[in-house]
Amino acid sequence: MVRLNLPPFNINVRKSQGRLEIFDVIRKKFIVLTPEEWVRQHMVHYLKNDLNYPLSLIQIEGGLKYNKLQKRTDILVFNKQGNPAVLVECKSYKMKDMGEKVFQQAAMYNREMKAPYLVITNGWGYYCWSFREGDIRQEKEIPAWNEINRQG
């Protein structure tokens, strides 16, 4: 697979019924390895290994309803109180333009989730925004777990 601009991790990949699959440490099963899943798994391991997020508070492909439509969030991290803290929208590493349309989709999901942080990534780079008291601010970094805990 393609080397992304995220730290490497101990990858567990297998071939099953002619398809490549990657082991998901959150769902604890093998998942079909698509370009988007490759990015999602890199982000999960980055959050866990580099930013110290506990795996037990990370949800993958959780459901939500928006305008009566069933949607799924890629990665949702909860704080220690059980409230949404960081919503991550993962796109395929083949997607070069993470522009306004991608931001609008992720922001739409976050209107329902109300996470204080929103991240969009394609594995080559990421954008992170914080939402506080009606103010939206672009951040330089994704907050580490200790920063999420300081905020409650």
Rank of each mutant, 00 (worst) to 15 (best):
V119L: 07
G63N: 13
L33D: 01
A85I: 00
K71Q: 07
I11F: 08
F23A: 05
N110D: 12
K29S: 12
Y93P: 02
E36Y: 08
R137H: 12
I148H: 01
K29C: 09
T121L: 10
N79M: 02
P116T: 01
K65A: 02
Q41P: 05
Q105N: 07
G125H: 09
K71S: 00
E21N: 05
E37V: 08
K48N: 12
V32I: 14
S16K: 13
E37T: 06
K28D: 15
K94F: 02
M1L: 11
Y46T: 09
P116F: 00
D24A: 04
V88F: 10
I148R: 01
G63S: 14
I11N: 01
Q104P: 00
V44H: 01
E147Y: 04
V25G: 00
G134M: 07
N49K: 09
W38H: 13
F23P: 01
E100I: 11
L20R: 12
A106D: 11
N12C: 08
K48C: 06
G125Y: 07
S130H: 03
A106T: 10
V13F: 07
S16N: 06
E139A: 09
K114T: 06
G125A: 11
E147T: 11
L33F: 06
G123V: 10
Q151K: 07
L118Q: 02
L51G: 06
K101C: 00
I136G: 05
Q104W: 12
E139V: 09
N5D: 10
E21T: 05
Q70M: 08
N83P: 00
E147K: 15
M108P: 00
K114A: 11
L55A: 09
E36A: 08
K68F: 11
A144Y: 05
R19T: 06
R111L: 13
N146G: 00
S92M: 11
H45T: 03
D135R: 13
A85S: 15
I26F: 01
L118P: 01
E141Y: 14
K140R: 14
V102A: 15
D74A: 05
E100A: 10
I31C: 03
P8M: 05
N79K: 04
Q70Y: 06
M113N: 08
L33G: 01
N67M: 12
F103T: 02
R150C: 05
E89W: 09
K94M: 08
K114H: 11
W38Y: 10
L33A: 05
M1G: 09
N10K: 14
P116R: 04
I31K: 12
M113W: 07
F78A: 08
C90G: 05
H42E: 04
M108K: 13
L47D: 07
L47M: 09
E21A: 06
I120E: 00
K71M: 11
N67K: 15
V25I: 15
Q104H: 13
